[in-house]
C-alpha cells in the first residue's frame, strides 16, 4: 500500500493492475487485471450462493430460504413498482442487484490480512457507467418499442398548462438524460468515498503509532474505533447502494413500461 517509504496512498487500492497482458482489441489492450479477478470472484461467489437455492425443496432449508429471500425481494420490488408486467424484467434487475451487492461486499472483505489486495469493482466509473448505460438502454428500448414516439409524452406530466409545456418538456428531458450519469456516479462515489475514508483512517493508525506510543494512544486508538464504526456503515452502504441501483432501475423501467 505504500508507494514510497513512510507514505500511505489511500488511492492505491483503486489502481487497476495488469496480471496478464491478454490481447489487443481495436487498439485497446484487453488485459487480465486485478479488477477482472474480483469480477470473477464476485460472480463465482454469487453462483455458489445461488446453487444453494437450487434444491427446490417444498420445505426450504436455511440456505434455500436465504436465496429465496433475495429472489422474492426483487420479485416483490418489480411487482410493486411496475406491476404484473414487471416480472419479465426481474431476471435482469436481480442479476444487477446481486452482481453489485457481491462486488460491493467482496470489496470490503478483509483479505488484506492474508496478504491479498481487495479491489472493489463498483468503485470504478467504467464499471458503474456500463451498468447504468445498460439499464438506461433497456428503458429507451422498451419505451420506444412499446409506445413509439408517444414515449415523449413521458416528459409532459399530466395537467401541465399549455404555455408551460415547452419548458416542462426541456426540464423533464434533461432530468431524464441525467439519469444514467446519476445512476453511475452515485454507486461509484459511494463506494470510492467509503474506501478512501477507511484507508485514510488506517493510515492515521499506522503513522501515529510509528511516531510514538503516545501518538498511537492519542490518535491511533480513536481512529481505529472510528474505523470499526465506518466499516459497519460501509457494509450498510454496500447493501443500500445495490438496492438503490436496482430500485432506480425498476422505477425507470416502470416509466418506460407504463409511461405515467
Amino acid at each position: 500500500m505504500a508507494t514510497e517509504e513512510g507514505k500511505i496512498d489511500p488511492m492505491y487500492q483503486f489502481e487497476v493492475q495488469t496480471i496478464l497482458e491478454g490481447f489487443s482489441l481495436g487498439g485497446q489492450q484487453i488485459a487480465f487485471t486485478n479488477s477482472a479477478v474480483w469480477m470473477l470472484v464476485a460472480v463465482a461467489g454469487l453462483w455458489v450462493f445461488m446453487l444453494g437455492g437450487m434444491k427446490r425443496e417444498l420445505v426450504p432449508g436455511r440456505w434455500q430460504m436465504m436465496v429465496e429471500g433475495f429472489t422474492g425481494f426483487i420479485d416483490n420490488m418489480m411487482e410493486a413498482n411496475i406491476g404484473p408486467a414487471g416480472r419479465k424484467y426481474a431476471p435482469y434487475v436481480f442479476s444487477l442487484f446481486m452482481f453489485i451487492l457481491f462486488s460491493n461486499v467482496f470489496g470490503l472483505l478483509p483479505v488484506g490480512v492474508l496478504g491479498l489486495h481487495p479491489f472493489t469493482v463498483t468503485s470504478h466509473l467504467t464499471v458503474t457507467g456500463v451498468l447504468a448505460v445498460m439499464s438506461f438502454s433497456i428503458v429507451l428500448i422498451v419505451g420506444f418499442a412499446k409506445h413509439k414516439l408517444h414515449f415523449f409524452s413521458l416528459f409532459i406530466p399530466d395537467g401541465t398548462p399549455l404555455p408551460m409545456i415547452p419548458f416542462i418538456f426541456i426540464v423533464e428531458l434533461l432530468s431524464f438524460l441525467v439519469r444514467p450519469f446519476s445512476l453511475a456516479l452515485r454507486l461509484f462515489v459511494a463506494m470510492t468515498a467509503g474506501h478512501i475514508l477507511l484507508k485514510v483512517l488506517a493510515g492515521f493508525v499506522i503513522n501515529s503509532t510509528n511516531a510514538g506510543a503516545g501518538y498511537g494512544v492519542l490518535v491511533g486508538i480513536p481512529s481505529f474505533a472510528l474505523m470499526i464504526g465506518i466499516s459497519a456503515l460501509e457494509l450498510l452502504v454496500a447493501v443500500v447502494q445495490a438496492y438503490v441501483f436496482a430500485l432506480l432501475t425498476s422505477l425507470y423501467i416502470n416509466d418506460a413500461e407504463n409511461l405515467h
Binding site: 487497476v16 491478454g22 482489441l25 481495436g26 485497446q28 489492450q29 484487453i30 488485459a31 487480465f32 487485471t33 479488477s35 477482472a36 469480477m39 470473477l40 469493482v121 470504478h124 467504467t126 464499471v127 456500463v130 451498468l131
Partner: peptide, 10 residues
Amino acid sequence: LTYGSQIFWL
C-alpha cells in the same frame, strides 16, 4: 488505458 479491459471483463 483500462476502459477496454474493464468493459470486456464486465
